[in-house]
């Protein structure tokens, strides 16, 4: 920068940026834009598009001796399946608080981790759980029950056998 005649400027003062330094500004802004896009792109990668989890849908045969209101928990699944005169329904046994597996009894559900309690239909009775247990989509065919853990249905939905 040229100092105008008469103007005093210490050599210690920082040089003001020349107004017409277009190339400099251009490179600065292109770098900023590139960085922004790169950052967004880098955060996009870890957010998986396909979730590598086991199939949510499964099919089981309910035991003939299953009484009304008695939970049937298929091995390896976090679901309690019930059969009463109105039909079949399934309630997820994953606690709505912090994801522990609740213990299903005929009276209701109890969470071993932080003591949440639920009624037989999954409503919260005590403890820190923020909402009722999920009811899951059920369909029946040929005596078999298909449950989809990925789809929730309104509480109380029963499917005729």
């Amino acid at each position: 920068m040229t100092v105008k005649p008469g103007a005093t400027r210490s050599r210690l003062d920082p040089e003001p940026m020349p107004r017409r330094d277009v190339l400099g500004l251009l490179s600065l802004w292109s770098m900023a834009t590139a960085l922004l896009f790169a950052t967004v792109g880098m955060f996009r990668l870890p957010k998986a598009a396909v979730l590598a989890s086991p199939s949510k849908k499964f099919r089981v045969a309910l035991p003939d001796t299953l009484a009304a209101g008695e939970p049937f928990v298929p091995p390896g699944r976090a679901v309690a399946i019930y059969r009463d005169p109105e039909g079949v329904y399934a309630i997820s046994t994953i606690c709505t608080h912090l994801g522990c597996i609740v213990h299903a009894t005929t009276q209701g559900f109890e969470c071993p981790c932080h003591g949440s309690g639920f009624t037989a239909s999954g409503e919260v009775t005590r403890g820190p759980a923020p909402r009722a247990l999920d009811w899951l989509q059920v369909s029946t065919s040929g005596g078999l029950v298909t449950v989809d853990e990925g789809v929730t249905v309104p509480s109380g939905t029963r499917v005729p056998v």
Binding site: P46, K47, A48, L51, A52, S53, P54
Partner: peptide, 16 residues
């Protein structure tokens, strides 16, 4: 949900 998904890379605690 986003925080959990980024942390686990899935909807369950698994290999991801």
């Amino acid at each position: 949900g986003l925080q959990r998904l980024l942390l686990l890379g899935s909807d369950t605690v698994g290999d991801e």
